[in-house]
Amino acid sequence: MPYRYLDEIATADVAFEATGKSLEEVFASAAEATLNVMIDEPERIEKKERVSVKLENRDRDMLLYDFLNELVYLKDAKKLLVRVESMDIKEGADGLSLEAELSGEELDPAKHPLGADVKAVTLHMFSLEKDENGWRAVAVLDI
């Protein structure tokens, strides 16, 4: 799940670029980039709880926006840190639908080295594009 942080954008916040061969993969990369802002070593998150997410949107990029917002919501409302277990995105005439199975555990500062709280996903420079190498997303997170 490749991603990298973009130092040169939005000084006080955190910008990242996530990539993937498929839409599902770039969504999972972007989720991981968001998670890794909040805690170090996201791979140590155990699969103790499961959450199913269903989302619909007319636009691809806004579907990603909704998906990342769901992760931020779960962190505050349920204290849950989750990673993508499986995901299926369907594109139809009316737009897109996403079904994802997420798994993870409750945030425990003793176990997860804390990073910075993600307040929100901003739409500044937010993009999701496809080129010959696959999908690329850019987002700026408000810290």
């Binding site: 954008i9 939005a10 000084t11 006080a12 916040d13 901003t122 739409l123 500044h124 420079m125 700026v140 408000d142």
Partner: peptide, 9 residues
């Protein structure tokens, strides 16, 4: 002032 999102900070 510095680079924010939408508005500058």
């Amino acid at each position: 002032g510095h680079w924010g999102y939408g508005f500058p900070i």
